[in-house]
Design a protein around this nucleic acid. Sequence first.
DNA 1: CCGTCTCA
DNA 2: TGAGACGGG
Length: 363
Amino acid sequence: MYIDQHNGVDMGVDLKDIIPGEAKTVIEDLRILHGKIIVIDGYNALYQFLAAIRQPDGTPLMDNNGRITSHLSGLFYRTINIVEAGIKPVYVFDGKPPELKAREIERRKAVKEEAAKKYEEAVQSGDLELARRYAMMSAKLTEEMVRDAKSLLDAMGIPWVQAPAEGEAQAAYIVKKGDAYASASQDYDSLLFGSPKLVRNLTISGRRKLPRKNEYVEVKPELIELDKLLVQLGITLENLIDIGILLGTDYNPDGFEGIGPKKALQLVKAYGGIEKIPKPILKSPIEVDVIAIKKYFLQPQVTDNYRIEWHTPDPDAVKRILVDEHDFSIDRVSTALERYVKAFKENIRGEQKGLSKWFSKPK
DNA sequence: CCGTCTCA
DNA sequence: TGAGACGGG
């Protein structure tokens, strides 16, 4: 497994400032996506849960053996809400990261180790808020956590796809093929991989605390449509990839000196491609093979070896994982499972309560 | 993050 | 009925 490639906080390419309003739709009610298959970036979701589900001092939820369970709690309850909204979820998990990412993975590892040290210091000094921040930054997803998450999804009857490399690339491929309606992630990378539709803020809920402030803002899911984005900016997908590379991607995280969203768009439009921009204009802190990066976004490693099928939930198997293995409360899990099984029948199996009576044979 | 409880 | 506090594992 290749766990260290994410840091869970801010990763990937930051396209937020170049996405035109016309390409975005705020999803006021999740039920707008009723009946739609959504491919969720599993690592991205698990990291969000791992970072967010903590006590004020940064301690995550743990079972009686001291094993972290925040990711399972988040995955369980959030998946139930998604199914209750009528969405058909499928998760995709990262495989082996491409060689291009090696440097970034090393960098993230160093950042995490530093954050872990700072966390210890903050705990010692009794600064709870600081401790929580560093705990979130140092959150690490282990192989065991990912295995547990996959087992839980199996027990819930939710399909997951093992990507050969980048999960975002595989998600984009599945949407492009028409096997799903949209990809879901906090990151914009799947757009560069050509996903026609991206849903952000699906695995986080309505209210989010502003960092370092005692205020909350409403966070609503939003749909970003690639074709509208390209038309509005008057560019091609290749141009968008170029813009991403200029701003910085996982494969060249520092981007290029002095180039922000506006300049990136202007340069790409003016020259027609990153490789045609005069070298003196492009100053990078490190040597970057822009052609290789571009090629990777256009032809990432993906697979057709997946099946998107929902299976009847197995409540006993869910209880074995959550209650027996990880000390969740039997009452809470049972209540949630009842809701889930009902929603699954109605929304994924398409069975309606009392429908049989309409179709029953007249006597 | 989530569900649950309290209280206006 | 809904915002806010709280505990979950």
